[in-house]
């Protein structure tokens, strides 16, 4: 790798969910709705939360899920997942506010809700759902992500790599190998 390769970094905010640790207490819903109330914390209403806990006590299913994007149409066919002997509908893991359900919509206006990672100024140390989750089913993670190099960077890297191969095997051998690869498969 040449010194010219630029590795760009950015902070990715994630919430890790461990469903086996979820007790179904819905403190996450309570706290999220309080934080997003105006004035802050002035009212509680889990239906306004940007996280909801899917609970099915008969099947022992406890899945906290954050609100994702709004989708104008519902999906055409859903998967059933079997995990650890239990069957989960794809819906259980889906954070979309879609036309087939009332979830993740403002109860009054019907407008879609989306998790904003508790954006605020100054920023919170951890989002509220994570702070409220004492059983440890939600963990906040800040991860440095190495950004994909831009195309010109990739090209420089490719050329550098090819050069070293030519030096090692000779140009003809390399061309022969490449044409074999493209035909054979």
């Amino acid at each position: 790798m040449t010194a010219s390769t630029v590795v760009a970094k950015k902070i990715v905010k994630e919430i890790k969910v461990e469903i086996d640790k979820c007790t179904g207490c819905r403190a996450c819903e309570m706290a999220c709705s309080a934080f997003h109330a105006r004035p802050r914390f002035s009212s509680i209403n889990p239906a306004r939360a940007r996280i909801r806990v899917v609970v099915d006590e008969i099947n022992d299913e406890y899945v906290p899920i954050r609100a994702g994007d709004y989708t104008p149409s519902e999906c055409n066919g859903r998967h059933i997942y079997k995990i650890g002997g239990k069957e989960y509908s794809e819906c259980s893991f889906c954070g979309a506010s879609c036309p087939s359900r009332d979830y993740f919509r403002e109860p009054d206006s019907g407008l879609p809700l989306k998790c904003d990672m508790c954006e605020s100024i100054p920023p919170l140390e951890k989002p509220w759902c994570v702070q409220a989750c004492l059983p440890g089913a939600l963990t906040y993670i800040e991860r440095e992500e190495t950004r994909e190099p831009r195309p010109q960077e990739k090209r420089a890297e490719l050329e550098g790599g090819l050069e070293s191969l030519v030096n090692k095997f000779g140009q003809d051998a390399l061309i022969e190998a490449l044409s074999k690869m493209t035909k054979g498969h």
């Binding site: 979820c22 007790t23 207490c25 403190a27």
Partner: peptide
């Protein structure tokens, strides 16, 4: 698993 009640840790 162990479960809890509304808004209790």
């Amino acid at each position: 698993r162990q479960t809890g009640c509304f808004n209790c840790s």
